[in-house]
């Protein structure tokens, strides 16, 4: 795959309807390699839907998605107008790792099996090599001693760190985080954010839907404020948090900071 591209991820006029409900309206976004973008906003703003649209868990109604400058998918009125070949699509999708709010670990597999599963089954990699890499990743997220436990024996924070390791095992170039700390008890949030921070520092391209304003402020290169299906405001953390322009952004931040 050519590394000679401008944007690792780009969307043009992406919109999504569920029946008559318009969840996403004309979303345009460009992401450069290595950028860390945090998406904030009130619930129901379409943040998660947007993230899920990027790796095809949701089918967009219309718009274009580019990955590494290649037109990945172009849809109009719920019909696919143009897309890459299936194999190519599949290959590019593997470049995107995803972390879910509710972890979604495979409960019938141990921590190590959870991490090894996809590289061995999907990428057909050598089992021993994958296991070695998996153990390294578990060490990185601080869970090497839990490798042989089943997920049900771990705390929420530990499960989420396993989920991150599982996504990283596929060697993705982009990581999507869908409210990774929202389902966690407050005292467990820190460990997960720490792992994400280290990941950001290592140069990973990241899109995070989050309510952790401190994290967004500290780690993000860019912050998007979404409301009612549109990007209401975007800018550096500095701009958004200290000098928000849009009225909606101000209200949202006030509400959050008061709470």
């Amino acid at each position: 795959m050519s590394d000679n591209y401008e944007y690792i991820l780009k969307t043009e006029h992406v919109s999504k309807r569920f029946g008559t409900l318009e969840v996403l309206k004309d979303i345009n976004l460009q992401v450069k390699k290595g950028e860390v973008i945090c998406i904030i906003g009130p619930s129901g703003a379409g943040k998660s839907t947007f993230l899920r649209s990027l790796n095809q868990l949701e089918k967009i109604t219309s718009g274009k998605i580019f990955i590494k400058d290649e037109l990945f998918l172009h849809r109009e009125n719920d019909h696919t107008v143009d897309r890459l070949l299936r194999e190519k699509q599949q290959e590019l999708l593997l470049e995107m790792g995803m972390v879910f709010q509710r972890f979604n670990l495979f409960p019938h597999k141990t921590v190590l099996q959870n991490v090894c599963e996809a590289p061995v089954i999907v990428r057909k990699e050598n089992k021993d090599e994958v296991e070695k890499r998996a153990r390294d990743l578990l060490e990185k997220v601080g869970l090497s001693e839990k490798a042989d436990e089943y997920p049900s024996r771990l705390s929420g924070g530990q499960q989420q760190r396993v989920a991150i390791a599982r996504a990283l095992a596929m060697n993705p170039e982009i990581m999507l985080f869908d409210e990774p700390t929202s389902a966690l008890d407050p005292e467990l949030v820190g460990d997960v954010l720490q792992v994400m921070k280290e990941l950001a520092e290592s140069g990973m391209t990241m899109l995070c839907v989050t309510h952790e304003m401190g994290f967004a402020r500290e780690v993000a290169d860019r912050v998007l404020f979404m409301a009612d299906g549109i990007i209401a405001e975007e800018g550096t953390p500095e701009e958004i948090f200290t000098n928000p322009q849009a009225e909606r952004t101000k209200n949202f931040l006030n509400a959050i900071l008061e709470a």
């Binding site: 868990l57 999708l93 995107m96 879910f100 999907v122 599982r166 596929m170």
Partner: peptide
């Protein structure tokens, strides 16, 4: 089975 399992598998490229 929780829908999240299907999504996690799909997100991993299965």
């Amino acid at each position: 089975i929780d829908k999240g399992q299907f999504e996690a598998a799909k997100a991993l490229g299965m």
